[in-house]
């Protein structure tokens, strides 16, 4: 445990990280993204394509976590790793459940987009309407 009198450069978090590690992380990330980009030209079926991009992205992310951020279970880094592992499910829950819920909501509440381009409908056609049109008088039925 270092105190503020000791040399801060001796701190464990400074000591971690080497030239090699950072360069490897760079190369893996760049290669993965490059390969994923090239996959667009391959015209794979969408599911295969998506799986490929997801897999390559995961490899890039893991290499960054391990080599850039230097996450491991050493004394200096353990709490960062733990907090990340505890938070990752929240990313997945938030995005996953949202996408799942909206896939059914869209299907059940939206008219198909083809209907949108029905002729004869345009926003400012009606006076007193439109996003910031002049306000009209209220009607009070009696």
């Amino acid at each position: 445990m270092s105190t503020h009198h000791a040399n801060p450069l001796d701190h464990a978090e400074i000591r971690q990280g080497t030239v090699l590690r950072y360069i490897v992380a760079f190369i893996i990330s760049a290669l993965c993204m490059g390969a994923a980009m090239l996959a667009v030209q391959l015209k794979l079926p969408f599911l295969h394509y998506a799986a490929l991009v997801v897999a390559l992205t995961l490899i890039a992310l893991l290499s960054q976590a391990a080599l850039f951020f230097g996450l491991d279970i050493s004394r200096a880094q353990i709490w960062k790793s733990v907090s990340l592992v505890l938070t990752v499910p929240l990313f997945i829950i938030s995005v996953g459940l949202t996408v799942w819920a909206f896939s059914s909501l869209y299907e059940r509440t939206m008219l198909p987009p083809s209907g949108v381009t029905q002729p004869g409908m345009s926003a400012p056609a009606v006076p007193g309407m439109g996003p910031m049109g002049a306000p009209s008088q209220p009607t009070l039925l009696q």
């Binding site: 949108v116 926003a123 002049a134 306000p135």
Partner: peptide
């Protein structure tokens, strides 16, 4: 009914007047 739905999709709104 469909026309009303589509109008809203096109951004038709009925501004609430100032007094309200």
């Amino acid at each position: 009914f469909d026309k009303v739905v589509q109008a809203a999709m096109h951004g038709v709104v009925y501004n609430v007047p100032d007094s309200l």
